[in-house]
Design a protein around this nucleic acid. Structure first.
Lengths: 348, 348
DNA sequence: GTTAGCACTCCACCCTGGAGAGTGCCAAGC
DNA sequence: GCTTGGCACTCTCCAGGGTGGAGTGCTAAC
């Protein structure tokens, strides 16, 4: 890593700040006049030339000002940015937006992503909790027709997962009810991530080996849990906010972005990447994500929790040029509010 | 209604056809040369002036050609358009796109809307079946915590509706199971639209009046069914296709459209309007819908069925200028394919 | 009623020149 | 040796003007 002098950093800071505010390339004179840099524009020109050589800035064309590269932006985000703390009035507004939320988890999450989008004027995203991150509450088998059964799985957090199984044998509803009953007793409160193991353990027990009903029930539950319960879902709201950004007024570019957002699996992937960390707010520039369709966008994300269980990620998607210093606190605050809300006992 | 002469109609037909193909205002010379109208351009100019006076055409500016007004377009759609029947190769392609569809109704509908969007290169929409249009299959009460119960309602078509109830009394899971059992017996196969009435009837019966369990169960089911089960949901896929239309290259206009589509309740309303009719494909111009945000778009829709039960509507949303003669057959064919598919027994 | 001809209108496009912003480099100053 | 003022240069943006093309409305002749 190349060392940047104090002054280099000041200039980089000023360029990024000004660029984020105006969206225009920044000239040397602007910096020496408007930001507290105590040298002349000529000196700044020299510094900027250095920064360009180091890959932090670039010139759209000769005789234009400089704009930050991804590398420059990343340096700014990591080392230079000072973010304002959220004003009390804004906190109150966000808190109010969460008022009157119902007990329905789904609606809560959708509303959260709407709140993010309106307060940040960009697209808001919320990654669903993975059903495996919570505990078993209830399983139910419903016979739809001969050889076909619908399985409804409910997690402690009130998440619902349903699924259709084809069976070799035809099993009556009464017997299915017995299965449900047995499994509900067996698996009560078991973390869904551990159910598989628990079922295997149980299968080895003597009472199961000699009881066809138990064996069948476990066999069926196995089929359910080997399904991919992981595949997350995501809410994206306020995509139209993206149209406000002048960088997306080019229809071709906008098209690329919206197409990328339409394929939710890609967004899930992106959000999943940021899920691994334990930290707070994290910023991912599209170019760092290996998904080249997302090159022109940036994600500000934060995990949300219930107690100390990591449930999912929420965040804001927008252009690389965003008002990070404002959006970061909003994302942070929203994540903490949501986590708080999810901890309340009457919240499923 | 003003009578249009044969020649008036020919000219109107030609103007609309040409405008749909090119998107440009159509001049008198184009018509006399390219379409089989056997009079000179001067005559056509006179006809066009008449049509303008009658409100069928308009001129974007003096010395430009004419484009059809909504009224002109409507006349064309109602009386003039001849639509090509779908080529066998296209039918096959659409049929193939439906292959490999799973048993999951939700996925089937999503895929249908994706098919519509790709084959028509516009946005595809599918309105969910209303849960009330099918029959009762199963109800289940799950105690989440003291005084709170999750209700899972499953329709014969495999639609799932879940909902959380707050209770004055705290009821144990065992008792809740008895409720489910009783209601599942009572309501088996009853059309969901009639459940309310059926429950009321049952409440008057003697055995119920003197049995607390029955009474409580019915009471609870009443609370579930008085909820709004009607509120339809809708899949909209391929919105980015709209960006291809040159009429939406203006970002302001595009923004209005996308914003309108983002508020799904509005689209549901629009689709609901077209649900009333029993006919086949129907075209709704935005200006006819009383939703002024949708003024600039057009909906080509068709109902879909299972047997002779009307389930929902599917269709294509695009600009007023669309290749109706192609899209109409596609929508029609897709609706019939979906209806067929839903009738197969292994399709839930 | 239909047509050819003509004058007219408006738009889209291109070219041009000037203003403005900003740079790089040089030579002088501290 | 870093900093600075000055200057020539570059590039974009925009307004103004000119041109060609498309299309119209009107009129007079058929």
């Amino acid at each position: 890593m190349v060392e940047l002098t104090k002054r280099d950093q000041e200039v980089l800071d000023a360029v990024v700040t000004d660029y984020i505010n105006t969206g225009e390339p920044v000239g040397s004179r602007t910096i020496s006049k408007r930001y507290g840099v105590k040298v002349s524009s000529a000196t700044i020109r020299n510094v900027m030339a250095d920064l360009e050589e180091l890959g932090f800035l670039l010139q759209p064309h000769t005789s234009a000002g400089r704009i930050p590269t991804d590398k420059g932006l990343r340096f700014y985000l990591d080392f230079l940015m000072r973010y304002k703390s959220l004003e009390e009035s804004e906190r109150t507004m966000i808190r109010q937006a969460f008022q009157g939320i119902h007990k329905d988890l789904r609606e809560t999450l959708r509303k959260t992503s709407r709140i993010l989008s309106t307060f940040c004027r960009q697209a808001g995203v919320v990654l669903w909790p993975k059903i495996t991150s919570t505990r078993f509450r209830h399983i139910e088998f419903i016979r739809l027709r001969p050889h076909q059964v619908m399985v409804v799985l409910i997690s402690k957090s009130g998440l619902l997962h349903n699924h259709i199984l084809d069976l070799k044998d035809d099993i009556g509803q009464d017997e299915l009810d017995k299965y449900s009953h047995y499994l509900n007793d067996l698996l009560e409160n078991v973390p869904l991530g551990e159910v598989k193991r628990r079922v295997l353990e149980e299968m080895k027990k003597e009472k199961v080996l000699f009881d066809e009903l138990y064996a069948k029930a476990l066999d069926m539950s196995q089929r359910v849990f080997q399904e991919n319960l992981e595949s997350g879902d995501v809410f994206i709201e306020g995509q139209t906010n993206l149209l406000n950004n002048p960088e997306f007024s080019d229809v071709q570019r906008l098209r690329r972005i919206l197409e990328a957002l339409e394929d939710k699996s890609r967004i899930v992937k992106l959000l999943d990447m940021t899920l691994e960390t334990t930290g707070g707010v994290r910023i991912t520039l599209g170019s760092e994500s290996e998904l080249k369709e997302l090159r022109e966008i940036s994600l500000i994300s934060s995990p949300y929790w219930r107690g100390d269980t990591l449930l999912g990620v929420l965040g804001v998607i927008g252009p690389l040029r965003m008002d990070y210093s404002r959006i970061i606190p909003v994302v942070e605050f929203t994540a903490s509010l949501l986590s708080e809300l999810l901890e309340e006992p009457e919240m499923v």
